[in-house]
Every structure is written in structure tokens, then in C-alpha cells.
Design a protein around this nucleic acid. Structure first.
Length: 266
DNA sequence: TAGGCCATCTGGTCCT
DNA sequence: AGGACCAGATGGCCTA
């Protein structure tokens, strides 16, 4: 499954393809050859197309019939140009969609790199969904815990004043800060099952054709190696400095999750 | 070689 | 009318 961007770009997904094609029918590329093979019969196809349109829609109203008669009246070359124009738009649309998919992959807590195979589209979407569910759940739990402990007056203090300043001598990405003291053992004791209980979607990467089950379906364990949930960020504003390079402390944990997810998706 | 994934083409439908 | 969106079909590439 090699679907990296280089291969993608090699597939003539450029919006300019249409123009290139219109200008010349000399193709050297694999994809171009395919297009050429398509276009070699294109005249026949277009002829068939217009004939089909007429026969298929012959019983329709006068408007539609005249519409297709009008289309029939277009020269073969015009029809071909129209088809290529439409194809080009569709290619561009799909290309943009793929760019958006790449953008989504970039912000996913997933090991990136030249040696790492890119997530498939379906895996990207499923992982993104689980990631959002996880973040939402984390946020809710964070709010709940802060509310429980400080009665909703969290903003009036800084966590450094309540006894874990030592941990703040390093950036939150430091391992010493992975389990936030505020959250204590309740979080560090989180097991995959408890996480799954609060996060029905997490760890539910499924085999093909059962990929889109509802979150209420029993989730699969995301991997035997995932023993605890650490790495929740400090909720206080001082600790909320922008995490380099792009994600929060959750990244390390989610990287582990996604690495195991990737294994499941192999 | 089968299956997964993908890009592309195509016709239909909906929207502006 | 033209463009956007969608889904089906097709065929190529890659991996187990």
C-alpha cells in the first residue's frame, strides 16, 4: 500500500492535466498512458454517450429531449473538450480532498516519517474520530476533576503553589510530568478498559467492513502493550504553553496508541 | 495471486 | 447553465 504523496502526484492528479492533454496526446507517464488508452476510444464513447442520452431520455419531456438534442448537436470536439473539462474539475476536487486528508494526517498523533507508511484514508478518518473522542473525554474529565477538587475556583491559583512545582521545572513533555499530580492516581491507574469505558470510540480500529460500527459496540483493546493512560496535560493556564512542535503532551501517548492502531490495521 | 488501496472517468443529482 | 458533489466502474500498484 504505497499511497504517499509522490505516488499521488505521479498519478497526474494535477488540475493542469486537462490542459496538457488538450495540447498534446503524447504521453510518457504510466497514468498518462492510461488516460491515452481511454482517450483513444473517447470518440466512440462520446458518440455512444450522446446516442445513449438520446435513446435513454427520449421519453422525457420536450425540454430534456431538446437539451440532449442540443448536446448531440455539439461537435465531437466540443463534447470531448467538455468531458475533459469536467474530468479536470473532478480531478482537482479529489486532489483537494487528498490535500485535506494529508492535512488531517499531519495533525494526527501518529508517527510521521519517510519510513512510515501513510495511513489509509479510512484509517485516517477513524483515527481522527477516536482522537477527537479522546480529547473530548479528557477535557471533560479534566473539568470534572478540577471541579471536584477545587470547587470550580481553579483559575484563582496556579498549580505550582500546590506542591508540584518541582515537576514544572521541566517542560510538560518531560516524562516526569506525564502523570499530572493534580490528577493523581485516578488517572495513572487508568487501564485500557477504564479508558475504553469513558471513551467508547478509542481503540476501536476494526477490521475491514466492520470499521464503522457505532461507538456503542464493544471496543477492541487497542493493543496488549497499552497498560495505562498517562500524559494528560496540566489544565492550568500557565502550563498551557504551546507545545512544540504542534501537539500537547497527549501526543506521546497518542503516538503509542496510533502505532498500535497501525499494527492493527496492517 | 488475492485483496487492499488508490486515481480517474463517468453519469446522475442537487445547488447557486 | 454551470459547478459541486456523489457513487459506481475500472484498472494499476503494492503487499502478504
Amino acid at each position: 500500500m504505497n499511497s504517499d504523496s509522490s505516488s499521488m502526484s505521479s498519478r497526474a492528479s494535477s488540475p493542469d492535466m486537462e490542459e496538457v492533454y488538450l495540447r498534446s496526446h503524447h504521453h510518457h507517464h504510466r497514468q498518462d498512458n492510461r488516460m491515452n488508452s481511454v482517450s483513444s476510444t473517447q470518440s466512440d464513447m462520446l458518440q455512444k454517450m450522446s446516442e445513449e442520452m438520446l435513446s435513454r431520455h427520449g421519453s422525457r419531456g420536450e425540454d430534456e429531449s431538446s437539451k440532449y438534442k442540443l448536446k448531440k448537436q455539439l461537435s465531437e470536439q466540443d463534447l470531448q473538450k467538455l468531458r475533459l473539462k469536467i474530468n479536470g474539475r473532478e480531478r482537482k476536487r479529489m486532489h483537494d480532498l487528498n490535500l485535506a486528508m494529508d492535512g488531517l494526517r499531519e495533525v494526527m498523533p501518529y508517527a510521521h516519517g519517510p519510513s512510515v507508511r501513510k495511513l489509509s484514508k479510512i484509517a485516517t478518518l477513524l483515527l481522527a474520530r477516536n482522537y477527537i473522542l479522546m480529547l473530548t473525554s479528557s477535557l471533560e474529565e479534566m473539568k470534572r476533576l478540577v471541579g471536584d477538587i477545587y470547587g470550580g475556583h481553579h483559575s484563582a491559583f496556579h498549580c505550582g503553589t500546590i506542591g508540584h512545582a518541582a515537576n514544572h521545572s521541566v517542560h510538560p513533555s518531560n516524562a516526569a510530568h506525564q502523570v499530572h499530580p493534580i490528577l493523581g492516581s485516578s488517572l495513572s491507574s487508568n487501564t485500557p478498559s477504564s479508558l475504553s469505558a469513558s471513551l467508547p470510540g478509542i481503540g476501536t480500529i476494526r477490521p475491514p467492513h466492520s470499521l464503522l460500527k457505532s461507538p456503542s459496540t464493544p471496543p477492541l483493546p487497542i493493543g496488549s502493550g497499552f497498560q495505562h493512560w498517562a500524559g494528560l496535560p496540566c489544565p492550568c493556564t500557565i502550563c498551557q504553553m504551546p507545545p512544540p512542535p504542534q501537539l500537547s503532551v497527549l501526543t506521546s501517548s497518542m503516538s503509542r496508541i496510533s502505532a498500535e492502531t497501525k499494527d492493527l490495521l496492517k
